[in-house]
Design a protein around this nucleic acid. Structure first.
Lengths: 336, 336
DNA sequence: GCGGATCGATGAAGCGATTCATTCGTTCGG
DNA sequence: CCGAACGAATGAATCGCTTCATCGATCCGC
């Protein structure tokens, strides 16, 4: 493997000069520069990032750890973050904790070993303990789709309470009085907040809290939604509407309704959450609470860059909260 | 940042011993080992991967470069590859070329600088020139979802001609005689091969080649499919069936039919390709050609590991071709 | 013609780990 | 009782690069 020394020898200059040609070309005389550059091209020299890193003390990589790469919502977040990071000259390492605390732990220590520049993370561990490692290593991080309890952490999130309220306000307005909330593992903040919003909407409309029944799915994916859908049909008094903690669940519920020949929206209205691309293409186009996923990724990356590139003392941690938006489609509109 | 020297000093041993405690614990006396380990824990020491790498000459990362992270098919490939790589102790860096040759180029040089252990790649550049860089750097790579022209490259792919044939045989059997193929950029091999399979099916059935009209989409995503769908409706003689080069296109076409109030499958049958999870959850569940995406990722990673871990001289390059499978659903079944 | 400024290039000192030849004690066999 | 053998720890060399103090050469002004 050809190194900087080989280039230096071939070009008849010192290694320092080769380094300057690469990193600060204006310090090198025209003639020398072109000579070195042509040797670099001829030998196919590629500088070793690890050696650079070792010297520099930090890598040029930003890590992104998401809960579920199978969820297009996170793919969208990733694309927003990636674009921003790459524009700043950083590579992005996207990893998937698959909602597992142990996978998350493994990835976080991998990141620490890599001395990544910073981490964007949607924590799987509800205790927040998993991030202590990063903190003690002094690796900056930004929470994505989560707000932190303490103000010493940057975060970008969407107002899930507002989103849940939007969804249920809409269902109430359409006349529904018996609604099921399909949630996920209760320790996931989103699941909790969206329900809180739903309850708030009921309260504001003067409806009793028991108008909302909760069904808890094992995981937040389509298969779990299918399962929740069939459990829902087993309920004593069948509800007329379902609000799901995300679109994957909603699509699963929709499939279950389809299989049981229950008409959506006439016999069962469905509202999802995230407004992933596939929501609009679903069996019945899905009403959903849209989250600004791409901007979220972008903002998170920007905050991290600010913390990491600028003067750290000058950085002010902040918690950005974005607003969701209801997108009404066929799954909740009474057919004419 | 605490380094190995700090640990050594605190534990009253040499750096070499600390290194041994970490990498070859059995070489170190019990008592010393535990002492060092406790100091490591106390100081929160994390070894620097870049220093290791510099010494070792190669990193512990496998790169995966896919065409479109928005396509769940590639997400599935990634998950297969990731599981395998991590089981072998390698990290995975998943990147998205978004079908752009220049992005691809950028990522490949990033990989070269990182001295990644190997690369799994679905090339965006149809000339295959983009991989010359890897070759000349001696970085092993495996083509995913592509077969290479020359036998000196490992690849894992699915028989796209067979897949196209399956799809169109099915449509012919259902009585369709005027079929549209929604393809993508013609230089994409998959798009070409699936069409070739379609034509083969026509020929085998004794039908004229002009039973198949091609509409070429700009890109292989839902929006392009929507667009292709409306163009399709503008054709002089409206076809009775569409075969799409992938499911995203098919979902887009489906949306266009929906918008134009054209019944699927009665007025228009649709067959997609990939059988992504969302195909089954679509407006009308989508008939699709299933590709074994997860096994493809797994196999590709295994081949790369074989090439990279074992004795390179001993490695035999091979081209694995998997078989697709037709999954029939509502979008191509005449309703009763 | 000489001191000082300027420009280009040099070469050595690290960055943080791994590795291996070496050293230092102990123990054991003869 | 001595040398060999062995176990445990050492410490220096090394990986490839960046950086910075330094050095040489050229040029300018007085």
């Amino acid at each position: 493997m050809v190194g900087i020394k080989d280039v230096a020898r071939q070009a008849g200059v010192s290694v320092g000069t080769v380094s300057n040609v690469i990193n600060r070309p204006d310090l090198v005389a025209e003639e020398t520069r072109t000579r070195v550059q042509s040797v670099i091209a001829r030998l196919g020299y590629v500088r070793s990032e690890s050696a650079r890193q070792l010297r520099a003390g930090a890598s040029r990589i930003m890590a992104l750890l998401v809960l579920d790469m199978g969820n297009p919502f996170f793919v969208a977040v990733a694309s927003g973050a990636e674009r921003t990071a790459r524009a700043a000259g950083l590579g992005v390492m996207v990893c998937n904790s698959a909602q597992s605390v142990s996978e998350e732990q493994e990835y976080l220590s991998l990141f620490a070993e890599q001395r990544v520049r910073g981490v964007l993370v949607t924590p799987a561990d509800p205790t927040g303990r998993s991030l202590d490692g990063l903190r003690s290593q002094g690796i900056p991080f930004v929470l994505v789709d989560r707000v932190s309890a303490d103000a010493s952490v940057c975060s970008v999130s969407v107002d899930d309470v507002a989103g849940g309220r939007l969804a249920v306000q809409h269902l109430i307005a359409a006349g529904h009085r018996s609604i099921v909330y399909v949630g996920g593992p209760p320790e996931v903040t989103q699941v909790h907040d969206r329900k809180a919003g739903a309850l708030a909407a009921l309260a504001e409309a003067g409806l009793p809290a028991d108008s909302l029944t909760e069904i808890s799915a094992e995981r937040l994916d389509v298969a779990a939604g299918r399962d929740a859908g069939s459990r829902l049909l087993g309920l004593g008094r069948r509800p007329t509407a379902v609000f799901c903690a995300n679109d994957l669940l909603a699509l699963g519920v929709l499939q279950a309704m389809f299989a049981a020949r229950i008409s959506v929206p006439d016999e069962m209205a469905i509202v999802g959450y995230d407004d992933i691309e596939f929501a609009a293409a679903a069996a019945v186009p899905l009403t959903s609470v849209r989250q600004p996923a791409v901007p979220m990724g972008r903002l998170a990356a920007e905050m991290l860059l600010e913390e990491t590139v600028g003067d750290p003392a000058e950085h002010r941690h902040r918690q950005t909260v974005l607003q969701p938006e209801l997108v009404v489609r066929g799954s909740s509109l009474p057919s004419r």
